[in-house]
Computed example of a mutant assay.
Amino acid sequence: MGSEAKLTIGELEAGYPTYCKALRMLIKNGKSLEAIQRTICWDRLTLLQKSLPTRYKSPDYLYALLKRDVDELAA
């Protein structure tokens, strides 16, 4: 968590697509929500949502959307 304090909001925002891609990959690989919640991408998505709540959805919401998409593609 120490590295998070050094990131600027701009750096977090620039990484948003990467964090979402990582979240999708974790879901596709069958990781549990509990395991995903311990990742750096989850921490960064949480930090972004807390910093700019009108611009970014919560990681829980993103997880639900991506999980539904992954499940639909697998069906």
Rank of each mutant, 00 (worst) to 15 (best):
1 M>D: 10
3 S>K: 07
3 S>G: 00
4 E>Q: 07
4 E>A: 06
4 E>F: 04
4 E>C: 02
5 A>S: 06
5 A>I: 05
5 A>T: 07
5 A>M: 05
6 K>Y: 03
6 K>D: 10
9 I>G: 07
9 I>T: 13
11 E>T: 05
12 L>Q: 06
13 E>P: 01
14 A>K: 15
15 G>P: 03
16 Y>G: 04
16 Y>L: 12
16 Y>R: 12
16 Y>A: 10
17 P>W: 00
17 P>I: 03
18 T>L: 09
18 T>P: 00
18 T>A: 06
18 T>R: 11
18 T>M: 05
18 T>C: 07
19 Y>G: 02
20 C>Q: 14
21 K>Q: 12
21 K>R: 14
22 A>E: 15
23 L>I: 03
23 L>P: 04
24 R>V: 11
24 R>L: 11
24 R>E: 13
25 M>T: 15
25 M>R: 15
26 L>Y: 14
26 L>N: 14
27 I>A: 01
27 I>S: 02
27 I>R: 02
28 K>R: 14
28 K>F: 04
28 K>N: 13
28 K>C: 13
28 K>T: 06
30 G>P: 07
31 K>T: 02
31 K>F: 09
32 S>N: 01
32 S>K: 09
32 S>V: 02
33 L>Q: 10
34 E>Q: 09
34 E>L: 09
36 I>H: 02
36 I>S: 06
36 I>F: 03
38 R>K: 13
39 T>H: 04
39 T>W: 03
40 I>T: 14
40 I>H: 09
41 C>M: 11
41 C>I: 07
41 C>A: 11
41 C>R: 05
42 W>D: 03
42 W>S: 04
43 D>W: 04
43 D>H: 11
43 D>Q: 12
43 D>A: 12
43 D>T: 13
44 R>Q: 02
44 R>G: 00
44 R>I: 00
45 L>G: 01
45 L>R: 01
45 L>I: 06
46 T>F: 08
47 L>G: 03
47 L>Q: 06
48 L>H: 02
48 L>N: 03
50 K>E: 14
51 S>R: 14
51 S>E: 10
51 S>K: 14
52 L>W: 01
52 L>P: 04
53 P>C: 09
53 P>V: 07
53 P>W: 08
53 P>E: 08
54 T>F: 11
54 T>H: 10
54 T>E: 12
56 Y>I: 05
56 Y>F: 15
56 Y>N: 05
57 K>G: 09
58 S>I: 05
58 S>R: 13
58 S>Y: 06
59 P>W: 03
60 D>V: 12
61 Y>Q: 13
61 Y>C: 08
61 Y>R: 15
62 L>E: 14
62 L>T: 07
63 Y>A: 08
63 Y>D: 10
64 A>V: 12
64 A>G: 03
65 L>T: 08
66 L>N: 09
66 L>F: 15
67 K>P: 01
67 K>C: 11
68 R>F: 10
68 R>K: 14
68 R>H: 11
69 D>G: 09
69 D>I: 07
69 D>K: 14
70 V>H: 02
70 V>K: 06
71 D>R: 10
72 E>A: 10
73 L>K: 15
74 A>M: 04
